[in-house]
Nucleic acid binder design. Sequence first.
DNA 1: CGGGTTGGGAGGTTACATCA
DNA 2: GTGATGTAACCTCCCAACCC
Length: 211
Amino acid sequence: MNPQVEDQMELISQFYPGIYTQLEPQQGEAKPRRRRKKSKGEASSGGTRKRKLTPEQVDLLELNFGDEHKLESERKDRLASELGLDPRQVAVWFQNRRARWKCKKMEEEYSRLKTEHESAVIEKCRLETEVLKLKEQLTEAEKEKQRLLERGDGGSSNSASPSFSMEAMDPPFLWEFGMEGLEAIFHLPGNNYIHGIEWVNSPYEMLLEKF
DNA sequence: CGGGTTGGGAGGTTACATCA
DNA sequence: GTGATGTAACCTCCCAACCC
């Protein structure tokens, strides 16, 4: 045993007699479960008393916990003798450590899910705004088309221009077809120029920019 | 196969130590 | 002195392995 630890234990034993009796289990003796004392007075006068593990003991325990969270019998006994602790103490430490680890994992998971949720909400808002913008653009395009038809040749139904309809453009229409669907819907001639309207910043291209 | 025993894990609680 | 917090020790329940 580490001499420094031994010194500390001896010192503490002087002030709290009986505190380390658990370190010397009587071989072959049945070990009944210790009932905790309820009164503080009893605890300080020789009953079971909590003691803090030394930083060295905690370090080694942590090191072992890092290797493997579960504790087989053999490893427990080996660790206990290395640390000068009762195997029961080592087992208890591992139990508590696993509980703390799980708790921490839960907190991390919660925090990760919260961030994910927040990002999803932001993305949803962005997409909703995008949909509104696109609908506005389509309305404008529809109006422009009407103006051109009224001013021009009277509106041939065999026109080469894409046939838009506001009913068809209502969501969820846009999102049901994927990118190929969008491309088909917004298919444009090579010069991006239809009936005097420049489509350089077409809704489709705006969408592509976003993705 | 069924029942008893044992060891160990999870989850929860209690009691003590420490600190602001 | 006191409330909050961390943690060692404990309790209870459950499950798997083993033995008879």
